[in-house]
Design a protein around this nucleic acid. Structure first.
Lengths: 126, 126
DNA sequence: CTCATATATGTGTCTTTTACAGGTAACGAC
DNA sequence: GTCGTTACCTGTAAAAGACACATATATGAG
């Protein structure tokens, strides 16, 4: 239970850091960015904080996630060597990905309601 | 990436199940229930769905979580053998737990804002 | 040329959290 | 006795995330 990672929240002077992130939120965030326009991984890493907050997403995990999404048919990709510098793998969303994003949006709305009820109940008896 | 668990979402006929739960949400839910009144584990398991939705929380993990919270000084407990049936361990929230719950509430409000921005952006270009 | 930096994609591995599958024990109803 | 309910607990594996490291192309400073 101890060590680094999400549960390691103890800070100086008895303060705690709590982040309250939605599980696997990177997935709908990627799908939303890719629905707006195709992009490659490095580009997505730079634009993800617009949706996730200022938290940086781990590059390695992001590339793995993109390949997993492609295996499941939610995105598709091809190499793009047209620009100078290292070759990029350009990802685009598929119809299945758009469909899943829709389900994510519904799930996030339900999550909003649950959290609202939690906060209401929290504030009722402060 | 395959197998059972949170990422195993493929259902019949191309449908997917997405849940959008807040990470470690059981922790603030427990703290809120315990702020309202002391309780024992089995009782908490029955009342947690009021906050988490209809999803059932795993008993084993709940007892482990309660002991972890106690180790961190967020709750305290004592055995209660006054009632018939098996002895219960009665948990109560500590001042540190109340303080952490406050941070959770702030974090959840920030999470609400991020999710609202996500949904707004999602609906802008539907 | 060499070195540092930025771009771009990856692998390896550990921890945390959650899921799942059990086990032990007290008590009441039958 | 044994069945169901209450109540607590352990073991273990998978998923997601955190962190460290590896590889390669290009550009600019010196």
């Amino acid at each position: 239970m101890r060590g680094r990672g999400p549960r390691s929240r103890r800070h100086h002077h008895g303060h705690w850091s709590v982040h309250a992130r939605v599980e696997r939120f990177t997935e709908p965030a990627l799908l939303l960015l890719l629905r707006e326009r195709p992009a490659h991984g490095y580009d997505l890493v730079e634009r993800l904080p617009e949706l996730t907050g200022d938290q940086r997403v781990e590059m390695g995990n992001l590339y793995r996630l993109l390949r997993a999404l492609e295996e499941e048919g939610l995105v598709e990709s091809e190499w793009d060597a047209s620009t100078p510098g290292p070759a990029k793998r350009r990802y685009a969303i598929t119809p299945a990905g758009t469909h899943l994003l829709e389900h994510w949006a519904e799930a996030l709305r339900r999550s909003q309601e649950r959290t609202s009820e939690f906060l209401k109940r929290y504030e009722e008896r402060g």
